[in-house]
């Protein structure tokens, strides 16, 4: 009997509830139950009876069309099958790691640049001064080589993962519909991911909070340029790891939330995010340009990194204000 009840509930799960629909559902259930009882009386097994009742049920769309209630799934956007959703979740997860690695590589590039600049200066002081004249020029170019290699690797990784994820951009723009069983699958995955998500975010936040302390500690204890450079480099590496954790965990959770359409991923919210993301696309590359120009022209590597936290805080405030304005 439960099988029949579940069967009906499933068929009606996407249908808006009104009195007519409720009555119809009850009538259908009574009907099927009566038929089932009779088949049992005639000597059919329980499974046989259920099979016969369900096979004679017919097509629910025929009935809904007559009632003038359409399945909401039929009207709204794109329908995703179970395989498509699995493919989407798998690839988002996979390429989010590459995005995280890309960002990490770029931060590592800056760290290496700072470090090698100071190291070379020291080396220069002790050894190279006595050697040929051209070494000076060489030494100022040397730190740039690992920097550009890492930077290129980082940007390349970002571009490739961006291209690979382009295919799935529609879940940010279009309404997506999934079947009940797929929805259950996504919900289960989201539930089992919840704990890892929280742990990863907390770890990321802790890295961010600890990173300036590491910088200050190393810089104070050593009291040298080299110490300062190591401190800044480790700060950048820690932030790089934190960003990786944020990106990977955030994107996985975001995929589930988008598929389930919970929280901030309603269509209106997408518009707000658009404003912020357009500004971000301008502000952050500009920050990098200013950072590089300032550092190279003024040779102010020891302080120019401060640009990133400042812009970061300002940008966070801006995003918050945009959200507030659009909410009202």
């Amino acid at each position: 009997m439960d099988t029949i009840k579940n069967y009906l509930e499933n068929l009606f799960c996407n249908v808006g509830v009104n009195e007519e629909v409720l009555r119809l559902k009850q009538d259908l259930y009574n009907n099927m139950e009566e038929k089932y009882m009779e088949l049992k009386r005639e000597g059919h097994s329980e499974n046989e009876a259920i099979g016969m009742v369900i096979s004679n049920f017919g097509n629910i769309d025929e009935l809904l069309k007559e009632l003038g209630v359409e399945k909401p799934a039929a009207k709204k956007g794109r329908f995703l099958s179970q395989t498509e959703v699995e493919d989407l979740v798998y690839n988002q997860k996979r390429w989010s790691k590459f995005i995280g690695i890309g960002v990490f590589l770029i931060l590592a590039a800056v760290a290496v640049l700072i470090l090698s600049g100071v190291v070379l200066e020291k080396v220069e002081l002790f050894n190279i001064r006595s050697m040929s004249v051209n070494i000076n020029e060489l030494s100022s170019a040397l730190p740039l080589i690992p920097f550009f290699i890492l930077l290129a690797a980082g940007i390349g990784t970002l571009i490739i993962s961006g291209l690979m994820l382009e295919k799935y951009e529609f879940i940010e723009k279009e309404e997506v519909e999934i079947s009940t069983s797929t929805r259950n699958w996504v919900e289960k995955r989201k539930e089992s991911y919840q704990l890892s998500y929280v742990i990863l975010i907390v770890a990321g936040v802790m890295l961010c909070v600890l990173s300036p302390m590491v910088l200050i500690t190393i810089a104070t204890f050593t009291g040298t340029d080299l110490g300062g450079a190591i401190g800044v480099a480790s700060l950048l590496i820690m932030i790089g790891i934190a960003v990786y954790l944020f990106v990977v965990s955030g994107m996985e959770m975001e995929t589930y939330q988008r598929l389930l359409k919970v929280g901030e991923f309603s269509p209106e919210r997408n518009k707000e995010n658009k404003v912020v993301s357009i500004v971000a696309a301008i502000v952050w590359p500009l920050t990098v340009v200013v950072f590089l120009a300032w550092s190279f022209l003024g040779n102010d590597w020891h302080i120019s990194w401060i640009l990133f936290p400042i812009v970061g805080i300002l940008f966070g405030a801006f995003a918050g204000v945009v959200e507030l304005i659009q909410k009202n």
Binding site: L24, L28, N31, G58, L63, E66
Partner: peptide, 11 residues
Amino acid sequence: KETTLYSAFSR
């Protein structure tokens, strides 16, 4: 079929 019957009732 059940659905045919109930569509007919409704109509």
